[in-house]
Simulated assay, not measured.
Amino acid sequence: MTLFGKTIQTLEHSLDYSSLKNRTIANNIANVDTPGYKSKEVVFKDVLNQELSPSFESKRTHEKHIPFTSQNHIRSFNVTTKSNTSYNHNGNNVDIDKEMSDLAKNQIYYQSLVDRLNGKFRSLESVIKGGR
């Protein structure tokens, strides 16, 4: 049993993911004119399996149904290079419109995580102060 449950830990991992994604997008934007540069993206692997595997059990009622497996995966996100495309004549594949859109979405996501974390801390502060 953890003192605060897993909410704060989950929010911390989500903030780590969003921070890495922000750095990766900013790096892509900074290299938009670099010849031969290939854009990178952050991949969050097996999120559903990680979240559901410890507590999700299913029964197959027919042999043709797809089985659910409860494999334990390590929570990980990796930076991968998209090397199979090229948008510019110099071999660069950074799409500045997509990167700016992804940056805006990620900033909104990050801010929502921070707001949620602040709410958790305000709740804990209220409990510590005795509801005042």
Rank of each mutant, 00 (worst) to 15 (best):
I74R: 04
I74Q: 06
I74M: 03
R75T: 06
R75H: 02
R75N: 05
R75V: 11
S76Q: 07
S76P: 00
F77M: 01
F77Y: 01
F77S: 00
V79W: 03
V79E: 12
V79S: 02
T80W: 05
T80P: 00
T80H: 14
T80C: 05
T81G: 01
K82V: 11
K82A: 06
K82E: 09
K82H: 04
K82F: 01
S83R: 11
S83A: 09
N84M: 03
T85Q: 08
T85K: 07
T85F: 10
S86E: 15
S86F: 05
S86A: 15
S86N: 10
S86V: 09
S86R: 11
S86T: 15
Y87T: 14
Y87F: 13
Y87G: 04
Y87I: 15
N88L: 13
N88E: 13
H89E: 12
H89P: 10
H89R: 15
N90K: 04
N90Q: 04
N90C: 06
G91E: 04
N93G: 10
N93D: 11
V94W: 04
V94I: 10
V94Q: 04
V94H: 08
D95K: 12
D95Y: 06
D95N: 15
I96K: 07
D97L: 08
D97G: 03
K98D: 15
E99Q: 12
E99P: 03
M100Y: 05
M100H: 02
S101H: 11
S101K: 13
D102V: 01
D102T: 00
D102G: 03
A104W: 02
A104T: 08
K105H: 12
K105A: 06
